[in-house]
Design a protein around this nucleic acid. Structure first.
Lengths: 256, 256
DNA sequence: AGTATATATCTTGTGGACAATAATGTATAC
DNA sequence: GTATACATTATTGTCCACAAGATATATACT
């Protein structure tokens, strides 16, 4: 009776092979699996290591992340709620797939981000003048960086992304409250998915975005909430248009 | 495939003695616990049955909802990410509390909702004329309802809330894509928390909101995205101001 | 009494067992 | 050869046991 034996063994807690942390090792500490699962899976999706539209199996991910299904499962639910993953709508049994990348979705996503950042930008614009100048200085520096990278004959997509990302992040950090910040943090990486996939094709148009950044900086200096909001929205809107063009050319991913 | 072997061995399973569903009973079906937990807990929080700032214990909730801790736990994580619940930031051990209601949070929340709805409103404003007129008709009807209720000498807070809610929901449904809709669905109930708590004190000022609705309707009829967005934002902004006043008077809940 | 330490208790975090359901494959009847 | 019933496998959903951390309580010592 293997089953009974196994069960009994279980209960008496022979405990076998304790995973207890050894002396010096930087072992995964207890209590971080869910976080880890969330960020790692998100990373996998954002970086396209799991392709859009593909089929997710909890057990596979669990094995890959060297943990049990429990935290993986929770992480997937979080990711679902945030839009990284879709639930293939069978009643009472959720089949999860990586959200596909489509032109339509990109449009909605970008406009949401534009508005969220626009709202944050209003906050930034209302800061005291001194603080605003300080921020404008940093923004200028970041934009200079961006320009410099773009002038390279072989610009590294990663570096460009980081600079652009930092530019926008600075605005969020300085002008948004906790809620808005969380919202941005949950949505923004989804734009990165599109960026990464089509980056190479967008690079040529990127000087346009840099120019738009200048307009944003001017508006921050002026301390004009409406203008900051507007210029930010425009930046995302145009970014979306540039992206849409590329998607049109190369096709969507994972939607079939 | 070692997994397979293990599974096969497992399968001896004598077990039974099962809580299997009886013939006719409307037994809770397998596969809906998480959903149920999420909505029920959210409901408890929104309705104030668990007071703001109070201390959540997974096991208690699990007992209350007649299920195990697992789905409750997942639901709490979702609610945390959406802002209904806060993690008392001890590293690697999350103590969860119901988010307190504060003036500051209300401000941020309302402005986010205003902008989200504003964006949806832009979508509504861009619909073909015929559809817009149809929607405007329904909006007018809802606003008439609202006016009627307000004229009662003993207006029922619930009815008012529902009418107002439907008004805004119609705009979302008609003008927002799936992402924006989901976003709204996750944020909006949090405004309801404030509403429910301070409802009685706001009732007097509510005719102002009704007037603002008229401006929204006009803008929809005109098909002017900027104006629809603006009027919606104004509606929420003013709502927030009215609320802030009351919070100032009666104090915050759960922040100490 | 007051403080510090040990102990008990409560709560959360994770893994894994099992149950339920969907998908797939196989055999059988016709 | 096809279609239907049946068996098998793959995968998700829930529960429970136990471990790790906190918090509260009791005890010892000065």
């Amino acid at each position: 009776m293997p089953a009974k034996a196994a069960r009994a063994a279980n209960r008496t807690n022979v405990a076998s092979t304790k995973p207890s942390a050894r002396s010096g090792e930087a072992v995964d500490e207890h209590g971080n699996s869910l976080r880890k699962a969330f960020y790692e899976i998100r990373e996998l999706i954002v970086h396209g290591r799991i392709s859009p539209g593909s089929w997710i199996v909890e057990a596979d991910l669990a094995r890959r992340l060297a943990m049990s299904r429990t935290p993986v499962r929770s992480a997937l639910h979080l990711l679902q709620r945030e839009g990284y993953v879709l639930e293939h709508t069978n009643v009472r049994k959720s089949r999860m797939v990586v959200s596909p990348l489509t032109r339509e979705d990109a449009g909605e996503l970008y406009s949401i981000i534009g508005h969220v950042e626009g709202l944050a930008g209003r906050g930034t614009a209302r800061l005291p003048k001194q603080r605003r100048m300080e921020i404008a200085g940093q923004l200028k520096s970041l934009n200079r960086q961006l320009r410099a990278i773009l002038q390279d004959k072989t610009p590294a997509a990663g570096a460009i992304f980081d600079a652009d990302h930092n530019f926008h992040r600075l605005i969020i950090e300085s002008g948004a409250g906790p809620r808005l910040r969380a919202l941005h943090a949950s949505i923004e990486p989804q734009a990165e998915r599109y960026w990464r996939l089509y980056a190479s094709s967008i690079l040529n148009d990127l000087h346009l975005s840099v120019a738009e950044h200048d307009a944003i900086i001017d508006a921050v200096v002026a301390g004009d909430p409406d203008r900051v909001e507007k210029t930010l929205q425009t930046n995302w809107e145009n970014g979306c248009a540039r992206l849409a063009h590329v998607i049109e050319m190369y096709g969507e991913r994972g939607s079939w």
